[in-house]
């Protein structure tokens, strides 16, 4: 334990409190993003580089910009009144008591615990990849990841449930007003960064087979590039277009297909045939990267929705 650990671990609850207690919503969102960045450092300190990568790209990046976009779309509204005082006090007492209970339970956890780590490392040669986290995500517990992709698609369908269709939008409207003074600058930034971002995403994807990295990390980076390009004036993908819909379900669909084929052969769900694990995992990862990145981009409101 170093001073840095104490600083990071102490900063997280403080930032959480500031994000949730301040009256100014803009301030709240800034604190939220700062918390994501500090959390990414905390993951690195906890030897979780995979999570650090995702947190930096998604927790602070994508989620943070989603909050900013929503704040802009909703405009300033009168502050809402909080819960009644008595309820707040009761709930505060309850949460503090449970936090103390959970803390005591954590302190009582065994220092040298049983875990599945040894078992995973022992089975690593059979998984087809050399990085343990990727082995768990896409082989040993690949079924979780399959359902997780379904969650992602269900969420984007819920986001688009009653989003305005392109026909309802004013025709030929650019993605953002042209008088936006930021546009040329962001265009420069996009020109400089997007090629590098694509390169980094490909590198992360390839690296995932043997070191921290993988489909989700790559997709998060790729989505960041996509959002930058849209901010710089490139047309956003139309969620109602057939091609976009196909791209959306391409990755998860390929995953379901690969999960289903062993069933036909009388094996188990997602049981990769002997010797095929590596090839199939890479194929699934490539397909997923593409679809996840598209999904993350589609989480951002289409221009027609802005300001409603």
């Amino acid at each position: 334990m170093t001073a840095l650990d104490v600083l990071l671990a102490g900063a997280l609850p403080v930032l959480a409190w500031r994000a949730l207690a301040t009256d100014d919503l803009h301030e709240a969102v800034v604190f939220f993003i700062a918390l994501g960045l500090v959390a990414a450092l905390a993951w690195a300190r906890l030897d979780a580089p995979d999570i650090a990568l995702v947190e930096a790209a998604v927790g602070a990046g994508v989620t943070g910009s989603l909050f900013v976009t929503t704040l802009r779309a909703r405009g300033l509204r009168p502050p809402a009144s909080p819960a009644p005082r008595r309820a707040r006090i009761a709930l505060a007492v309850l949460t503090i008591a449970s936090a103390l209970g959970i803390g005591a339970a954590l302190a009582a956890l065994p220092a040298e615990p049983p875990g599945l780590g040894e078992l995973v490392r022992a089975s690593l040669p059979e998984t087809g990849v050399q990085h343990t986290v990727t082995a768990v995500l896409l082989n040993v517990r690949g079924y979780d990841t399959l359902l997780e992709m379904a969650v992602l698609v269900a969420a984007v369908l819920a986001v688009l449930a009653r989003a305005p269709s392109p026909s309802a939008r004013p025709a030929a409207r650019p993605a953002a007003p042209d008088d936006d003074p930021a546009r040329p600058l962001i265009a420069v930034l996009a020109r400089l960064l997007v090629p590098g971002i694509i390169l980094v995403a490909g590198y992360l994807l390839w690296r995932g087979a043997f070191a921290p990295g993988g489909a989700f990390q790559a997709a998060a980076v790729l989505a960041g590039g996509g959002i930058l390009a849209i901010l710089a004036g490139r047309r956003a993908p139309d969620p109602h277009a057939r091609a976009v819909r196909r791209g959306l379900v391409f990755g998860p669909g390929a995953f379901v297909l690969i999960a289903a084929v062993p069933l036909i052969a009388g094996r188990h769900v997602l049981e990769y045939p002997e010797g095929w694990a590596k090839v199939l995992i890479v194929a699934v990862e490539v397909a997923l990267t593409f679809s996840i990145a598209l999904t993350l981009v589609l989480f951002f409101p289409a221009s027609g929705e802005k300001g409603t």
Partner: peptide
Amino acid sequence: LVLVSSSISCQLVAR
């Protein structure tokens, strides 16, 4: 990379 992004975000904030 930090140079590029910070110079542009600085311009954005200022504008």
